[in-house]
Amino acid sequence: MEAEVVRTEMVLPTSLPFKRIQMSDKYPKGQSRARYWKHLKQLLQAESFSPDQPNYINIESPPSVYPSKKFCDITGFEAPYVDPRTKLRYANPEVFKRIRMLPDEYVQRYLSLRNAAVVLR
């Protein structure tokens, strides 16, 4: 390792005196990549919750009681219209023109901002 890199002390040493089990013993080389960590969703599915106790799932907020406002995907202003083809919301005819000129990729990116993009599986 170059002296410059060593001096900055940014690289984590591979073995540390205060550890009982070193990283290399715990995750032997080549095997560590295959190790799979359960994501939060899977963790929660495996968990056993009693319904009367507060838990990670039931403390979550319900949907808002207010009707969700529709905003123009491009300008952010209030949007009374929806383009039936791209499904983008728009505020006025000028924005509509721009929407119709947008490449498909951008339409999808705008839609994915509010989680409405078409997801191909």
Partner: peptide, 29 residues
């Protein structure tokens, strides 16, 4: 408009497609 449009996400999570209450409404809940 981005200056206040982005933090508005905290009050209207539906803007980023999250169907939950906003920061203020959460107090009521």
């Amino acid at each position: 408009i981005e200056r206040f449009r982005c933090p508005e996400v905290l009050f209207q999570p539906s803007m980023v497609g999250i169907d939950q209450a906003g920061l203020d409404e959460m107090v009521g809940i």
